[in-house]
């Protein structure tokens, strides 16, 4: 799958599953689309809030992509924690996001991609948020 020309550098994305639900299909499709578009992906798999935060601090990513397979609590607290960093990377969220959870996230300025979202729209958001065109 190709989304435009590959960029001259690779913005780095830390991706993680916040829940303990082991279905990998959704996050893998998004990971694949972002790689194809030239992003470098650090995939954490199922990770706790602390594990995700240390990866974000260590990897200094241009973007954080969270997969939600449960309630929003954990994602909201991560958005909060990440915002407290000195130069916080933007966060996007994908997965099983109810319509009301989507509104909650968007009110916080977080792009949310429920099932059926176009991959091109995810890639476009990732490019916009990392100032990459």
């Amino acid at each position: 799958m190709t989304f435009n020309q590959p960029p001259p550098y690779s913005p780095r994305v830390v991706m993680a599953k916040t829940s303990l639900d082991g279905h990998w299909r959704g996050i893998t499709i998004v990971e694949h689309a972002l790689r194809e578009a030239g992003f470098e992906i650090v995939l954490l798999g199922m990770a706790t809030r602390d594990e995700i935060m240390s990866a974000v601090i260590q990897e200094d990513p241009d973007l954080v992509g969270l997969n939600v397979g449960g309630r929003l609590d954990l994602v909201l607290s991560l958005v909060d924690e990440i915002a407290k960093l000195e130069s916080p990377p933007p966060v996007i969220v994908g997965g099983i996001i109810t319509p009301s959870a989507k509104r909650t996230l968007e009110a916080l300025g977080v792009d949310a991609f429920p099932p059926g979202s176009k991959l091109t729209s995810i890639v476009e958001a990732a490019k916009r948020l990392t100032n990459f065109n």
Partner: peptide
């Protein structure tokens, strides 16, 4: 519940405690 059953974790396992809000969803 996928979180506890699939992994054979009790509900006070640190992995589950770290995501307690998701318990019982599936």
């Amino acid at each position: 519940d996928r979180m506890t059953a699939d992994h054979l974790y009790d509900v006070d396992n640190p992995e589950v405690l770290a995501r307690s809000g998701d318990v019982g969803l599936t």
